[in-house]
Nucleic acid binder design. Structure first.
Length: 570
RNA sequence: UUCCCGGUUGUGUAAUUGGUAGCACGCAAGACUCUGGAUCUUGUUGUGGGGGUUCAAGUCCUCCCCGGGAAGCCA
């Protein structure tokens, strides 16, 4: 785990301020203990990363600080082992370690049951035999107070017996629930005798058929926090209205460990969605290839796309923590990704849309192995040899027959530099007789410019990447774009939902790409910079030595594209 | 209509707790460059509104406006 309390600029978000204040007042005997409490009902996404970085980060900033991983598994209807496994590997991949503190709310089911019994004995809870529908009606509305359940006055003895029989499986689902006795006229609906146990004959991923009653979140969560000695229970804004209930249970049960719940605003990102329910819908309806589709904001999707944990952590550190509902521009995520990849990604050459180029004055059978640096940002990454020969491929978009203003690349009569190789000048074009499309270029090279330098100091403005046709390896490349066309995918026509905002061009498959020979053995998961184009990684699922397949992680910033956009605007 | 929470440049987020509104991203212009990448420089109409307290208000008081959340036997 990262330990950067000293060199990191002091973070001053409101949560860390509260904790610093608590420490100053020697609250919690100077302990700082947080937890990350996912429900295993889906895969983790970038929004969870914010919470993970916050909780584990805060713990790591204090000597002796701890952060638990706890699965909030109180609803067996939605939870699965697949999710339990993926969540653990995602948290680890992000770079955090819960050591031996892996917990499950289900670990505490017996203890939670005893707490519930205590509440009943203290006259603070009762068995309600109203139907779900009736309970809703009795609860009242936002503006009307509720009314007491007719079962509210059952005797302690009767409540005790019924609760035990609920556990024993004597009743049907829905026949009874256990409810707290609070206040049916509270302005906070959460306090109108909330349900704390319900009957469910559903097999639980961990406890199997041992239980047929399951505690509700509000009851289980605060008590689990208390049992684990959590000092600061950090959650998202939608739980603000639940905080009085969180405190109510801990106060009524007179628990000495009373964690403080603090709410912060969840992460929203432009051009994507963060709802687990909606992500699940994309998966189930086959609109993406799975939870790890590289277009998904899930950690497994981002990982497969080529995102690094470091970039995600930096992003989470920089976006800040507050209580303001906000949407962060996805460009900021991409910025920290590029910043990270720029330092570490080896440079290679790959031609995505090849245009054949013949160097007319280069000997037929000659091959030169030229030096190419692996990363101008980091000389310790060394260099490699790349083959140069008479027939090459360059990028189609690096040639225009009639170049617009400010176009520095190849066109008839113009000279450019081939990266790491020679200056070449375009002397002829071959066109398809039917379409008129340029299918081959004839160029001459200047032998005096080997390595890309000219002794006479002559300058060329454009530099292109290229591959030797005889040596190139054919590959497929997946170009990814935003999953949604709208900055806010929920911004839809009245009768449509977010699906209607799916970007039809979120995936562009290129099949005839030509990559430099060394890339044949690219290890899946390692990210390269394809010179002048972007960062790409071999796909961890579909790439093989026989059929190399690369995902575009993120494009390079493209100022030529901006110039073009400006030109077309004017 | 009830309760809770929020509102600082285009987007996020700070402001020593009443004392120069800063940082990052984005955008724009320029410099530099064997990646139109990176890097560097410069710029970039901001405290939701009205009153009030004060020498001084993003910060305190007050009224209003706007946004979000809350009526699961979900979390």
């Amino acid at each position: 785990m990262k330990q950067e309390a000293t060199d990191a600029p002091a973070s001053t978000d409101f949560i860390r301020t509260i904790i610093a204040e608590d420490l100053k007042n020697n609250k919690n005997e100077g302990r700082v203990h947080t937890r990350f409490p996912p429900e295993p009902n889906g895969y983790l996404h970038i929004g969870h990363a914010k919470s993970i970085c916050l909780n584990f980060g805060i713990a790591s900033e204090h000597p002796g600080g701890l952060c638990n991983l706890r699965f909030d598994d109180t609803n067996p209807a939605k939870e699965e082992v697949e999710y339990i496994d993926s969540i653990q590997s995602d948290v680890r991949w992000l770079g955090f370690d819960w050591q031996e503190r892996l917990f499950y709310t289900s670990d505490y089911f017996e203890q939670l049951y005893q707490y519930a019994m205590q509440l009943i004995k203290d006259g603070k809870a009762y068995i309600c035999s109203l139907s779900a529908d009736e309970i809703r009606q009795y609860r009242g509305t936002l503006t009307e107070t509720g009314k007491d359940s007719p079962y509210r006055n059952r005797s302690v003895a009767e409540n005790l017996e019924l609760f035990q029989r609920m556990r024993a499986g004597d009743f049907e689902e829905g026949a009874h629930v256990l409810r707290a006795i609070i206040d049916m006229s509270s302005a906070n609906l959460n306090m109108r005798d909330p349900t704390i146990y319900r009957i469910r004959y559903t097999e639980h991923p961990r406890t199997g058929k041992k239980w047929c009653i399951y505690p509700m979140y509000d009851f289980a969560h605060c008590l689990s926090d208390s049992i684990e000695g959590i000092t600061h229970s950090i959650c998202t804004l939608e739980f603000e209205n639940n905080r009085p209930l969180y405190d109510w249970f801990l106060d009524r049960l007179k628990l000495k460990s009373h964690p403080q719940q603090i709410e912060f605003a969840r992460l929203n990102l432009s051009y994507t969605i963060m709802s687990k329910r909606k992500l699940l819908q994309l998966v189930e309806e086959g609109l993406v290839s799975g939870w790890d589709d590289p277009r998904m904001p899930t950690l497994s999707g981002l990982r497969r796309r080529g995102y690094t944990p470091e970039a995600i952590r930096t992003f989470c550190d920089r976006i800040g923590v507050s209580k303001t509902n906000s949407t962060i521009d996805i460009a900021m995520l991409e910025h920290y990704l590029r910043e990270d990849l720029n330092k570490r990604a080896p440079r290679v050459m790959a031609v995505l849309r090849p245009l054949r180029v013949v160097i007319d004055n280069y000997p037929e059978d000659k091959i030169e192995w030229l030096d190419a640096e692996n990363n101008p940002e980091d000389s310790t990454m060394g260099s490699r040899k790349i083959p140069f020969s008479r027939v090459l491929y360059i990028e189609q978009e690096d040639f225009i027959e009639e170049p617009p203003r400010k176009f520095f690349r190849l066109s008839p009569g113009k000279e450019i530099r081939l990266k790491h190789a020679y200056y070449i000048k375009c002397v002829r074009m071959e066109k398809d007789k039917n379409t008129g499309e340029v299918i081959e270029l004839g160029c001459t090279y200047d032998p005096q410019t080997r390595g890309g330098w000219s002794a006479d100091g002559r300058k060329v403005k454009g530099t292109s990447h290229w591959v030797s046709a005889a040596h190139a390896v054919k590959a497929e490349v997946r170009l990814y774009n935003h999953l949604f066309i709208k900055e806010n995918p929920e911004d839809t026509q009245p009768d449509k939902d977010f699906i209607s905002n799916l970007n039809p061009d979120s995936l562009d498959l290129l099949s005839g790409c030509m990559i430099e020979p060394g890339l044949k053995n690219a290890k899946p998961g390692t990210t390269y910079q394809f010179l002048r184009q972007g960062y790409f990684c071999a796909d961890s699922v579909d790439s093989s030595e026989e059929h190399p397949l690369f995902n575009r992680t993120v494009s390079l910033r493209d100022s030529w594209a901006k110039i073009q956009r400006a030109q077309s605007r004017s």
